[in-house]
Write a protein that binds this DNA or RNA. Structure first.
Lengths: 252, 252
DNA sequence: TAGTGGTCTAGACCACTTA
DNA sequence: AAGTGGTCTAGACCACTAG
């Protein structure tokens, strides 16, 4: 199965667990072309004897390869190397969050916060009745005194909370971005799209009207599965780029 | 630990494996608020006695919860429910691929394919010398006769392949999107950003100049870790939206 | 029927944290 | 020292696929 005589072995004295070493060995074989897409991996028993590990250890390693989508396992048939598939690419919002948190001089300016009565659109998004009260907030994120993100959000008004002030502290998206948050939320739905900035948005972000931007829309739900926050974040396109990697990386 | 007296048990006769039932039970407890962010999960031994399963089964279930980032486990301390974190959101390119493949009437039109000599920019992206030959291709994806994606790509010219025709069949991104592909690639790097369409791009996509679009740039590498394809896909913003979910879903 | 992966057991030992 | 999670063993049985 291996192309050369010098086959790697598991180093039991290593800090790296045996199952991880096995994951790395197979990943390298895929990355270097020793194993090609479509090739069948050795059976579990062969791995056991080949590397002197127990079946559970082999299974754990293979499970990880399956999760990483480098191979696919089918009961009764075997485990096979998957071809490269662009659909596997995942873009993580962590990058955007890092922009927010690690930016040397990042601060958030609250532009506006007031009670608004829900129109049909807001009401349907928050699953309330038109005319019910919501808290509307507009925030601007500045990095090095440069506006980079513009956030608008509607929160359902909760009369059990003492003051508007209290709810302002919730600052849902801000809390979520900063990690310190926001007990009330247990689930969220996010979408991202490319948009042309309207005049007001462009003005706030100090770019020409019509400039391209990422629009990150969000709805957050509480424990009762009721929406409590609906809003969107406009991100200056010239400041944000999401990245992804696909395929075997030989490392990681 | 449970809020009510009626505690769920593992159904050994079910099609659902024991470890998955355990995953689902704990996920539901998180989703419904029985377990709050910061709460410590029962120790593994408690799970074993509570649900009458072996330690390995418990560990597998907890590993899955850790992978799903619903909980975090620290050696010597315990396992704790994680707060909702927007950074965990992942957008999958699979959605875009589905657009391509499941679109009722999707076809690809090759607008141009010719040899070009690499300028400094192309050369640096493909790690070749300026002046070396590359294959330049422009393709247009139409859905219901409407242009939705515009793809431009440079491939390193491989003199060992008999004809340009042969390399045209590689059609790297197309192959990757369709899944049937493209032996030569083993790794890829993708970025996505929001851009304003230039006049030529907008003309091809039949939208006004300056319209917002997703720009998906890609570089693919062969087994020797050498770049073989550099290109970009312009996606009409009004046709593409990426979605993500965060938090406990109680199902799935 | 033979071979494969999928699940599961009932423990063991270790490393780490906390007190 | 006690409690935690992290790793690993050496099997077992089952479900599925293929010849």
């Amino acid at each position: 199965m291996n192309a050369d005589g010098k086959t790697k072995t598991i180093d039991r004295g290593s800090y790296e667990p045996a199952y991880m070493q096995l994951v790395r060995i197979v990943s390298e074989q895929i990355a270097t072309g020793i194993l090609h897409p479509g090739d069948q991996l050795p059976a579990e028993g062969q791995f056991c004897t080949r590397y002197s590990v127990s079946p559970m250890t082999v299974r754990r390693a293979i499970n990880i390869l399956v999760e990483r989508r480098l191979v696919s396992a089918t009961q009764g048939k075997g485990t096979f190397v998957k071809p490269l598939d662009i659909g596997e690419a995942v873009f993580r919002l962590q990058e955007l969050k890092d922009h927010w948190t690690h930016g040397s001089h990042t601060n958030v300016r609250l532009l506006e916060a007031r009670i608004v009565f829900a129109d049909e659109c807001i009401a349907s998004k928050l699953a309330i009745s038109p005319g019910e009260r919501t808290i509307y907030m507009r925030r601007l994120v500045l990095q090095e005194d440069l506006p980079t993100m513009y956030h608008r959000e509607y929160l359902v008004y909760d009369p059990t909370l003492p003051l508007v002030e209290a709810q302002l502290q919730i600052t849902s998206l801000e809390g979520l971005l900063q990690g310190q948050n926001s007990e009330g939320f247990r689930r969220g739905h996010l979408t991202i799209e490319a948009v042309n900035l309207k005049e007001e948005e462009a003005g706030v972000l100090k770019v020409p009207t019509g400039s391209a931007a990422f629009y990150l829309e969000h709805i957050f739900y509480d424990f009762h599965n009721h929406p409590v926050s609906w809003g969107g974040l406009m991100c200056r396109a010239d400041h944000f780029k999401l990245t992804a990697y696909i395929g075997a990386d030989a490392d990681l």
